[in-house]
Write a protein that binds this DNA or RNA. Sequence first.
DNA 1: ATAGGGTTAG
Length: 795
Amino acid sequence: MQNKQIFQDSLLHVRELLESCISSKSLIQGKIIHQYLLKFYDTNYNTHSLVLDKLTRLYISCKRPQLAHRVFNSIPSRERKKKTILWNQMIRGYAWDGPFEKAVDLYNEMVDSGVTPTKYTYPFVLKACSALQDIETGVKIHGQVRRLNLDNDLYVRTALVDFYVKCGCLVEAREVFDGMPERDIVAWNAMVTGFSLYGMWWSAIGLVLEMQQKGVEPNSTTILSIMPVIGEAGRLREGKTVHGFCLRRCFNDDVVVGTGLVDMYGKCGQLVYAKKIFAAMGLKNEVTWSAMVGACVICNSTREGMELFGRMRMEVGESPSPVMLATIIRGCAKLNDLSMGRQLHCNTIKLGFNFELMVANTVLSMYAKCGSINDAVRFFEEMHVKDSVSYSAIISGSVQNGYAEEALQLFHKMQLVGIVPEMATMMGFLPACSYLAALQHGICGHGYSVMRGFTADVSICNALIDMYSKCGKVDAARQVFDKMYKKDVVSWNAMIVGYGIHGLGKEAILLFHEMQNVGHKPDEVTFIALLSACSHSGLVTQGKHLFLVMSQEFDIVPKMDHYFCMVDLLGRAGLLDEAYKLISMMPYEPDAHLWNALLAACRIHKNIELGEEVSHKIQTLGPASTGNFVLLFNLYTTAQRWDDAANLRIQQKELGFKKKPGCSWIEVHGIVHAFVGGDWSHQQSPEIYMKLEELVAEMKRLGYTAEADFVYHDVEEEEKEKILLYHSEKLAVAYGIISLQADKPILVTKNLRVCGDCHTALKYITIIAKREITVRDTSRFHHFRNGICSCGDFW
DNA sequence: ATAGGGTTAG
């Protein structure tokens, strides 16, 4: 009897102790008491019913829902049924700290065992549903809420709004929100957050105004949820309003709000404001510094950001966070500073977060953007965990560094390992198709983009326009262009470029006028596209006019690229002196690239004197490219000045230059087949060469002779013919003829300009094989049909 | 609160 009293007393004491653990969240102390209980008391529930209650609560308040669950389960089910509050607490525990599925499971278990959920149950279950993005369960729960007549409860309704918002069901969220009989600040904030999350800054701001009209004062949460979206949209005006509001309410004394403002101004491109706020902030933390450095990077003051980064390490002495390093590494990518990037990569290794996905993806894209594709690939292969961003980065990195075929392979591999391509992935994939003229792949990419709803995006459509026109399908490009409900300047430029490379200069100019009619302003790229379109179509007068109009009417100062186009245009048209005059009048120092354009024109129009002069100029500028050697060489051979040609070749060898090997490729049944000159590596080489010889025999009957002036003169006549005969473009065309159905057009892409002999030969081949052949070289398309090329021998 | 992938021209 006395023992029992002692026992009861001590239990009372234990409960008191547990209560104090709960309020102070002392997990360790609580665990000790738990151990003690297990050791010294039997498990007769009646003895310590209230103790188990308290233990469950303790574990929940210490964020250990699974431990709590174990204790909860040790309560006999008959007793558990009476403890609705404990059920709610359990669900709350899982809804906050996960695993979220357990919260839903527990809710179902609760209902199944006949316990009626209350208005306190639902906010937690809904929170779990939104964390799981489980719309189905959430909607079901919404139904149950209605049946229990709980949907007029403020908290339940707010939770419903929050659930629909986080699951992307904005319409439903708004419906629930509008039907609320009363709304507190939390409900308003939930809805504002919803609009912000989906980039609808105008709705978010409208709602903030509305709430003020209804007498609800925005708090710092409201402000914090609209700042990111204003920054993202770059809405400076709205940003300033928010800033003003913060000043009036003294919100900006808050570190979090201050950091948000720094970030927002940075994203609006206002580095000066961002810096002012940063300087005025009394309390700064790591996040504030990161935001400030991020603002510098966005505003193209990366160097300043790097200085700040250094200052932070001096002043605060902390080691940088992953976010900080990612930000600064992105800055390196922007500056093309490979050595700095490498150094920071080492830092991430030292600090042990080099494989944190965000950081790793930043490092990966830094290497790719700094042109060090080998490092990028190696790093990519070393990553243990990769996601669609990693793949997108390596795919676009590969294309940008000229490895489009590898990009396609990576895209394929990505799908094999089960990673779903996202919009940005397609932004790398489609240019890869453009580069390779891989139409089949491109069409698949188009289909996929439609399926995923990406074609609502302007940039994706721009990439599609580019893809179709570079794959020889200007009409398909135009269809995409016409169907776009919204276009930007890139869309117009891409389409103009498309017409240009197909020699459709007039269409390009027409589009330029249409562009102005619908109120789009051309930019400098537009004029590059237009001038090169004129050049490929021989539209000299129009080109000159556009060049004038560009600065006079559109206030665009001609850059080096524009002069390049003009020299090209005048040169091709044979107006060599005028081109030369333009160069001497231009406000820039001419570079080798520009002289090259003139040299190419000299070759076409066989102007040896000027060609030599230009060539010397190029050589004094330093060996920028091998292109000029090839051009000058061709110029000499055209003039039959064999000695000069031979000397040039010796000189070229002494300087250690090699001609870039010509490579052509063709897509057959979705596979890209590549050839170099005299290539025997293809499986079907015997058939290809047989077909080629067959064609040549027929061509000769029709009057074809190999044009020797592109070949070295010190080889035998017959040898010359062979070198020409096995040029990569001829091999690719022959392969196309034997492997594609007779009614299928042939599209070959070459990495250099198509050679003169091949150009002639292909005209014959269209007649003999009765097929349309298209060759895309580095500067334009050649459509061969019935012995004629669309370029009009003008390229 | 801060952070990763992207379109046109040359």
